[in-house]
């Protein structure tokens, strides 16, 4: 039994002709801020979803906090918080109603839900319906919904995609704070500056494989380039993706 928060070994997943994930192994330590980087279609989201237990891998094993997410493991689900790529909200509900509904799924009282809304700075928008929130507000709400039950392990799928610089910087502060409280955070992103400032370690993926794992600064030094972005381009090439 390993003490790591996440251990993933030899994950493979095939969709029809496409080998979306082709033998991914990762280890995330407890309390670590871990980034999965890669161009569109690299297999980041599929890897993340298999790790969360949303999809069953064709091959390979996943251990989260020492337990297997398969079959569906409610005790483990209580200890992890997941933000899906699309903001998964109940239709026509206000921000407060959303987070209170999610809170009730975990048996968390409404006061705690309201406090979480405050933490992400959405108290003023509590009465606003999900479809009238701005992109940044919706992202913050979905992160708040993922954190409402105080999980040890947090998965975030492209949390800052489509946000303006202000909203991104705000979210970064929020994410750093989450990690600072001792939670293990795994996020996917294709913003290198984001990975560079936030992540303790990153895994660069392409074509369903992990190309390189390491702390951003180490990777930069190792490849003798100026930034993580250069690392990324050197590893994944410059052709257009999707």
């Amino acid at each position: 039994m390993t003490d790591a928060a996440i251990t993933v070994e030899g994950l493979r997943k095939r969709y029809g002709d496409v080998q979306a994930v082709d033998g991914v192994s990762l280890t995330v330590e407890r309390g670590e801020f871990y980034g999965i980087l890669g161009p569109n279609g690299a297999g980041k989201t599929t890897t993340l979803e298999m790790t969360e237990g949303l999809r069953k891998p064709d091959e390979g094993t996943v251990r989260l906090l020492g337990e297997s997410p398969f079959p569906r493991n409610p005790a483990l689900l209580r200890r992890m918080g997941v933000q899906l790529q699309a903001s998964a909200f109940f239709e026509k509900l206000t921000a407060r109603e959303q987070i209170r509904t999610f809170a009730s799924l975990y048996g968390v009282p409404a006061e705690r839900a309201d406090a979480m809304l405050e933490t992400v700075g959405l108290t003023e928008k509590a009465g606003t319906r999900e479809n009238r929130l701005s992109g940044g507000q919706a992202q913050r709400l979905s992160i708040a919904c993922a954190l409402v039950h105080d999980p040890e392990l947090v998965f975030l799928d492209e949390p800052t995609t489509g946000l303006d610089p202000q909203a991104r910087r705000n979210l970064w502060d929020l994410l750093r704070a989450i990690n600072g409280e001792g939670r293990t955070v795994v996020l996917t992103t294709h913003y290198m500056d984001e990975a560079e400032t936030l992540c303790d370690r990153v895994a660069v993926m392409d074509h369903g494989r992990v190309l390189r794992v390491g702390a951003p600064a180490e990777l930069v030094a190792e490849l003798g380039v100026d930034s993580l972005e250069d690392v990324f381009l050197q590893l994944t090439g410059r052709e257009y993706r999707q």
């Binding site: 237990g53 949303l54 997941v82 899906l84 699309a86 903001s87 998964a88 239709e91 799924l105």
Partner: peptide
């Protein structure tokens, strides 16, 4: 249809609710 499209089905799968 709506819950599948908005991924609420998935989100509920990830919550400890039967």
């Amino acid at each position: 249809v709506n819950w599948r499209k908005k991924r609420i089905l998935r989100r509920l799968w990830l919550a400890p609710v039967s």
